[in-house]
């Protein structure tokens, strides 16, 4: 293969406990630690391993977002990507618009494979890979935990509700990663220095001429309903008595 395109989204780090603005207008993002969406990081790791096996020439990372997303692209370069592209916009794009934007990048880069996370841990949508594949009229394999490339096709093992599903897709294709695909490498300091010299190209979103009309608007963002305060019991006997009194076990 010539090229893998990996998509990286900048999101609130998964260790952060998100807080809501009291007026219901959204999630507090000021001063909060931001990272590469963990699923995208796994997608990048997979692309790097494919390159290290000598099965692809080049790994390109792409992000769509504000200029701050450069940080995540630099991290991607430090992990080992060859170059980076940022499509810069301050707007919150819906997944369909993101997929259209990625299609524009696909047209420029002609990748043999697009790898990205199955979902971003902010909006938890789980849509972009499937949408990009539809617009590109190419196959997709999503929730993938094992991937092998053989010539003009790839075999993917997918984590589905019933177990593991194996599919074969012709290349080019879109593949979305699940958690067990791999464990991403740690970035070492010299790599961070080296990454500063790698190419990071910026394209203004407006330049691509993409229809960005939104179909959905968020009316409010509220905390989830709270569960009632629980109780502690101090023995198995007391636990069984409690379960019985609530009618959850027989007796």
């Amino acid at each position: 293969m010539q090229r893998i395109l990996v998509c990286l989204k900048r999101v609130v780090d998964y260790n952060v406990r998100v807080r809501l603005k009291p007026d219901g207008s959204g999630v507090v993002l000021d001063g909060v630690k931001m990272s590469i969406n963990p699923f995208d990081e796994i997608a990048l790791e997979e692309a790097l391993r494919i390159r290290e096996r000598g099965e692809v020439e080049e790994v390109v990372v792409a992000s769509i977002g504000t200029s701050d997303s450069q940080q995540q692209l630099r991290t991607g370069l430090a992990m080992g990507a060859d170059r980076a592209v940022l499509v810069e916009t301050d707007a919150q794009l819906e997944p369909l618009t993101v997929a259209r934007t990625l299609l524009a990048l696909v047209d420029r880069e002609n990748p043999d494979l697009v790898l990205l996370g199955k979902q971003a841990i902010d909006a938890d949508n789980n849509q972009t890979a499937q949408m990009l594949a539809a617009l590109w009229q190419r196959p997709h394999a999503v929730f993938v935990s094992e991937l092998s490339i053989d010539g003009a096709a790839a075999t993917a093992v997918r984590e589905v509700d019933a177990g593991l599903e194996v599919v074969e897709v012709d290349l080019p294709a879109v593949v979305s990663s699940d958690l067990r695909l791999n464990e991403p490498r740690y970035v070492k300091l010299p790599e961070i220095m080296k990454a500063k010299k790698k190419l990071l190209e910026t394209i203004a979103f407006a330049e691509l001429g993409i229809d960005a009309t939104s179909q959905f608007s968020v009316v409010s963002t509220d905390p989830p309903p709270e569960r009632a305060q629980g109780i502690r019991v101090d023995s198995v006997e007391a636990l069984v008595a409690e379960l019985k009194s609530r009618g959850l076990v027989d007796g």
């Binding site: 609130v12 406990r17 998100v18 809501l20 999630v27 841990i121 902010d122 909006a123 938890d124 959905f216 608007s217 968020v218 009316v219 409010s220 963002t221 509220d222 905390p223 989830p224």
Partner: peptide, 12 residues
């Protein structure tokens, strides 16, 4: 739900 259920959005 968004953010792993830490927030609930009302969407139109």
């Amino acid at each position: 739900p968004i953010y792993a259920g830490n927030a609930i959005v009302t969407v139109e």
